[in-house]
Design a protein around this nucleic acid. Structure first.
Lengths: 118, 118
DNA sequence: CGAATACATCGACGGTTGTCAATCGAAAGG
DNA sequence: CCTTTCGATTGACAACCGTCGATGTATTCG
């Protein structure tokens, strides 16, 4: 549920942060995304999901060593940031990466030497 | 564990987060770096510095619209993360980007397609 | 139906973070 | 020397965040 429906933005808008001065709205948007990555548990969570392709949430508790509400809290944070999506099948929720969303963050940090793709 | 690479590596170690499960130490290290990017003021700060190449700290107050201690606090945060460096010349401090450090973060988010150097 | 399971939500706790006024330390100029 | 200026540091406050026990909700099974 609550799939992070992308806003009306095509998501391929932005170049590198290093390229041109960031306006405040875009800065806020990016900051929220990086916030989702600013916790070691969430990074490992992202890594676990990416590595497995698709993982049942129940398989995340043990490798993370965190309580179930904590893991649920973190999956929600990553999902709110659009970095992962969950598909409920039966009693289970299967999580997977949203690669283009992660790639967009990588692009925001890409060296400005990469300009002029034209 | 099943990483094809040895454990303790110099600063150019890591591939993508999406590539292999992240160990806890590496996750903590990356999380700290992304923390530095998780604030809109710091992102605009980074952007301003990158755009100018090298900026006197005194020129950052106005575009950011923040008080001087606040800006100093943020420059310190970015510097602690290794993303910028300051050079004191006379009374002024000139800040500039550490491109390879930023690039390393971009790499951590790069799609796993970048693997397979065999 | 009722019991069991998987996950989300709530509430509370301690720790962290962004912000700024006040102050301090260093460098430059008179 | 004293004054000015740039920037870092301190201290305080409110807001936010990670964590987990308790509870709620939805689904499956007997």
């Amino acid at each position: 549920m609550a799939r992070a429906s992308s806003t009306s933005r095509p998501a391929e808008c932005c170049g590198s942060v290093l390229d041109a001065p960031l306006d405040e709205v875009e800065a806020l948007d990016l900051a929220r995304a990086f916030s989702a990555l600013s916790d070691p548990v969430r990074l490992r969570l992202l890594s676990l999901i990416a590595d497995a392709g698709e993982v049942c949430a129940c398989e995340l508790l043990e490798p993370l060593g965190k309580a179930q509400p904590t893991v649920s809290h973190h999956t929600k944070a990553l999902a709110d940031a659009g970095l992962i999506v969950g598909a409920k099948r039966g009693r289970w929720v299967w999580w997977s990466i949203v690669p283009e969303r992660v790639a967009r963050l990588a692009d925001a940090l890409a060296p400005a030497t990469r300009t002029a793709p034209v």
